[in-house]
């Protein structure tokens, strides 16, 4: 037992060492940004501090309007930060023009040039850098192969499906082999099935080319599936940055807990605990809380049962399947194992 424990910690130490060894590609220091809109000023970014290692897949997760796109645009140079700096491989690029930055962006609605063919679109970044035509052609072919669009080079963007456009957009950015690739909800417009397929392809591409990705998504599953680390943005700062496991199982704040995977927030005395719906037990020995079923709903392959506790707090439990033998209005005892409740800092009302 003892031995197993030390070997695990030795492994994690070695892992840590590896991460520390990894080269920092991008560093954000105290980035702030406000927008003035008809005399009303809103501070969107309130001091973002962050650094990203080479080859890492980072996902920015946060509610709509929290400033994810703004942050990406600041890194790309399409927007300027009010204060703070952006370092790319140690070089301060805060004031550098976007066309001089070794960073590329995949826009949410692709932004393909409508008057250029697929091949011209993909090769555009090399053309601006005055790469010889022949070399561009070979590289475009390689890229087309990589995104599985061979034979489409002469097509115009408006004759492509959503998924194909998406691939062109990704190829157009990746062909430049940027130090960091920024992706603003690149799969947002695709249907679920295509999305799952594209997620796998993107991840495969990212590993293959060992490109650093900063990825925005609204989809928690996508974030958890693809990322090395997730940064949860809230109120203009990164509220928590960590591996999907850390974010999911060890949320630091109530906001992170409820935003990622909709954990229950259970208030007891002055403390707040996050309890995942799947960890809520019903009528088992650990169960000590009196509850009434007030709603049942089926979504995403799971039945969600909403309970009201005697003190008015609401707790959701989830179970696989489409029904559970508890009716709305029925009494039950609920509870959870001690270690499935994580104490969090309360910052969500």
């Amino acid at each position: 037992m003892e031995k197993a424990f030390t070997s695990v910690s030795a492994f994690s130490k070695c892992n840590e060492g590896r991460i520390k060894m990894a080269k920092t590609v991008l560093e954000l220091q105290q980035i702030t940004k406000s927008f003035t809109d008809k005399t009303k000023q809103t501070e969107v970014l309130k001091g973002i501090d962050f650094s990203i290692n080479e080859g890492e897949f980072i996902t920015l997760l946060g509610a709509s309007g929290c400033g994810k796109t703004t942050l990406l645009r600041i890194i790309a140079g399409l927007e300027s930060a009010d204060t703070g700096s952006v370092l790319l491989e140690g070089e301060d690029i805060t004031k550098k023009e976007p066309y001089l930055r070794d960073v590329n962006m995949v826009f949410q609605n692709y932004a393909l040039f409508p008057h250029m063919t697929v091949a011209e679109n993909i090769g555009y970044g090399l053309k601006t850098k005055k790469v010889p035509k022949k070399e561009i052609a070979t590289k475009v072919q390689e890229m087309l192969e990589l995104v599985q669009l061979e034979g489409y080079e002469k097509r115009m963007p408006d004759k492509l499906s959503g998924g194909q456009r998406q691939r062109v957009a990704i190829a157009r950015a990746m062909i430049n082999q940027p130090k960091v690739l920024l992706l603003d909800e690149p799969l947002g417009a695709l249907d679920l099935k295509l999305r799952r397929q594209m997620q796998l392809e993107l991840k495969r591409l990212q590993k293959k080319l060992n490109t650093t990705f900063i990825y925005i998504t609204h989809d928690q599953e996508e974030a958890i599936n693809m990322s090395d680390r997730i940064a949860v943005m809230h109120d203009g700062v990164f509220e928590q940055v960590g591996t999907p496991n850390e974010i999911y199982y060890q949320p630091e704040t109530s906001y992170v807990a409820s935003f990622v995977g909709n954990a229950n927030l259970y208030h007891k005395a002055d403390a707040v605990y996050a309890v995942r719906a799947e960890s809520v037990l019903i009528n088992e020995t650990e169960c000590t809380l009196d509850a009434v079923v007030i709603e049942k709903s089926f979504a995403g392959g799971q039945l969600r049962i909403l309970f009201a506790l005697s003190d008015g707090q609401k707790i959701t439990a989830s179970r696989f399947g489409i029904d559970y033998d508890l009716k709305v209005g029925e009494q039950a005892k609920i509870g959870w194992k001690e270690d499935s409740a994580v104490r969090v800092i309360a910052n969500e009302n």
Partner: peptide, 16 residues
Amino acid sequence: TQLEEAAYDLGARPFR
């Protein structure tokens, strides 16, 4: 402005 931003992002200077 997005198409133009995409071009800037891909390394095109203002006149280009």
